[in-house]
């Protein structure tokens, strides 16, 4: 039983170590917060289907680059073959918030001249008492980079679904409008098995993909 999906989006999750990238991915792909091991159980890649509109499913392939950062060529390839990403920081760790800019710069270096659609995620929002980054300043930063901001908690399953689905919807809109288009040799977006002809009108025009600048 092959799941039928309209598109496959490849996403990356980046951010400082310890911000909870793996937990977030795990929570999303399995619906369960991994308590089994500490340090967190590493994941390599997971995929899941998301239904953004009735009958329209998108397959998300989520990559965690943990462990490969040593080689520039590898990181580069990961970034380049992703259409979107979650940029995580830990709301209880100011440093991880300050590094958001570094992460964006790093991405920029790798994907020039294209861009990855990012959503800024303030993680561990269940630990509100230890908060070191206010929602306001995070929203301001996100606005400055033209991103959305969302606060999540993998432990309490707050907004985890929403973070991924919102991002997926945004990307889907861009794909639909032809601002991101499928390109042979690029695996950020792949066209899936279209169940019937209903969607044919939405087939993407092959145009200047990904160039959102």
């Amino acid at each position: 039983m092959e799941a039928i999906w309209l598109y496959q989006f490849r996403l990356i999750v980046i951010g400082d170590s310890t911000v909870g990238k793996s937990c977030l991915i795990r929570r999303f792909t399995e619906g369960r917060f991994a308590q089994i091991s500490d340090p967190t159980v590493g994941v390599d890649f997971f995929s899941r289907l998301v239904e953004i509109e009735p009958g329209k499913r998108i397959k998300l392939q989520i990559w965690d680059t943990a462990g490969q950062e040593r080689f520039r060529s590898i990181t580069r390839a990961y970034y380049r073959n992703s259409v979107g990403g979650l940029l995580l920081f830990d709301i209880t760790n100011r440093r991880s918030f300050q590094n958001v800019h570094e992460w964006l710069e790093e991405t920029k270096v790798h994907v020039q001249p294209y861009q990855i659609v990012f959503v800024l995620v303030g993680h561990k929002c269940d630990l509100d008492t230890q908060r070191q980054v206010t929602r306001h300043e995070a929203e301001k930063l996100a606005a400055a980079y033209g991103m959305k901001y969302i606060e999540t908690s993998a432990r309490d399953a707050i907004n985890v679904e929403k973070a991924f689905t919102d991002l997926t919807r945004d990307i889907y809109e861009l794909v639909k409008r032809g601002e991101i288009s499928i390109q042979e040799g690029w695996e950020g977006v792949k066209s899936g098995f279209v169940p019937n002809v209903v969607h044919s009108s939405e087939e993407v025009v092959k145009s200047d993909r990904r160039c959102l600048c």
Binding site: A3, E30, G31, R32, I36
Partner: peptide
């Protein structure tokens, strides 16, 4: 198939 692959941790029953 990925639906089935969830819940490897913790048994879940």
């Amino acid at each position: 198939m990925f639906g089935r692959s969830r819940s490897w941790v913790g048994g879940g029953h």
